[in-house]
Simulated scan of single mutants.
Amino acid sequence: MSGPNTEYDPVAVTPLKTEEVEAARDAALAAIAAASDLEELKAVRLEHAGDRSALALANREIGALPPQARKEAGQKIGQARGAVNQALTARQEVLEAEHEAQMLVVEAVDVTLPTDRVAYGARHPLTTGAELIADVFVAMGWEVAEGPLIEAEWLNFDALNLGPDHPARTMQDTFWTEPAEDHRVLRTHTSPVQARTMLTREAPIYVVCPGRVFRTDEYDATHSPMFHQVEGLAIDEGLSMAHLKGTLDHFASQMFGEGISTRFRPSYFPFTEPSAEVDLVCFVCRGVDPESCRTCRGEGWIEWGGCGIVNPRVLRACGVDSERFTGFAFGMGIDRSLMFRTGLSDLRTLFEGDVRFTSAFGSEL
């Protein structure tokens, strides 16, 4: 029996020749050293260390050698591939450091330069608040009515049963325009819009009137000479205080959350009879623990506005048949309602024009 072939010379296999392995290694090391950026190094890695590289193909030839020749060939190829991989790692670290340093220069931002960015604007919460209130009533089938800020004395007072001797007509309560013989005022409430509506429309009437009003009040945390009101007027056959109560309960729940109800306290207004003050159940303690509530201060209720059945004199003055139709009206401050909803403690915040305040509300309330 013949023995193993001991005369086989692995040098005779071209890819495994020492000079060929060294040439492949040297070519790879030269290409690695010449790579100027990470993209070039990636291409060098594929060419000289990938599955189709000269050293990888030579490594495959080791399996065809006889056992006694594999060790020497394996060491030779392994050392060459190890040198190439070590060079790749070192070169990559250098190129990554250079890339990061370059990016710091290229993408540097001078924070001292003036910016050309324009901040996003925001709608004033009084505007969005008035629209929210209008939406509540439009959803109920009502209409939104508007009127001028400078109003005729007759519409602002006489048509609403505020006689010539009523104290609201004095200079201490009302802004009068010049000349005095024009008998015009900055409207003290939005009720003139209700009078205009009754004069120009046929009953039934269901309108809500949000807008600015003016009174000679001091400017402080709870008062302003210019503020915002919303008033509602319903004229139809058979309307009563029960319809008024249901309307205001729905309005309150839409503004302040489910479970918020109202109560009436007897009061007096020249344009309504009977009349009532409207209170909200405290939207913080819900009337459950008023003694410890800082919002309602132990009352369990918060004053909201005024309301009542439209005085027949007002109906007749505006051309409405008071024998056939009845109506109800209500009014409250939009500013006050907004303070309730947002927790504002100072009314002046609404009028100071600070963009940091309005920006917090965004485009909706």
Rank of each mutant, 00 (worst) to 15 (best):
R263P: 03
F328H: 06
E40N: 13
A73N: 12
T177R: 00
A276V: 15
T112D: 02
G298D: 07
V84C: 06
L338T: 05
E151S: 08
L199C: 10
T174V: 09
T216F: 08
V94M: 05
Y268C: 13
R294K: 09
H48L: 08
R117T: 15
M226Q: 07
L113Q: 09
H189A: 10
F137G: 08
G300Y: 02
V136F: 13
T174C: 11
P192W: 07
L113M: 12
T295Y: 10
Q86G: 15
Y120V: 02
R81T: 13
C209Y: 03
A180H: 01
D236K: 06
R215G: 07
V281K: 03
A90C: 00
P179F: 08
G287F: 02
L46Y: 14
E7S: 12
G308Q: 11
V144Y: 09
G319Q: 10
H48E: 01
P266N: 05
T190E: 07
G141H: 02
M103S: 15
G211C: 02
L126V: 11
S275G: 07
G259I: 04
I302D: 04
R356C: 06
S253P: 03
V278A: 05
N59G: 15
F269G: 04
D217F: 06
F283H: 09
H99G: 00
A97L: 06
E151A: 14
A12Q: 03
F361I: 14
V109S: 04
D26T: 09
I235D: 03
F361M: 10
K71Q: 13
M198C: 14
L113C: 00
D220H: 08
V144I: 11
R184H: 05
L244F: 10
G362V: 13
K71A: 01
A130G: 10
I32A: 14
E131I: 07
P225V: 09
V208R: 00
E181K: 00
S240A: 01
D158S: 12
E131F: 02
V213G: 11
T177S: 00
Y120D: 13
A90Q: 14
E47K: 04
M198L: 13
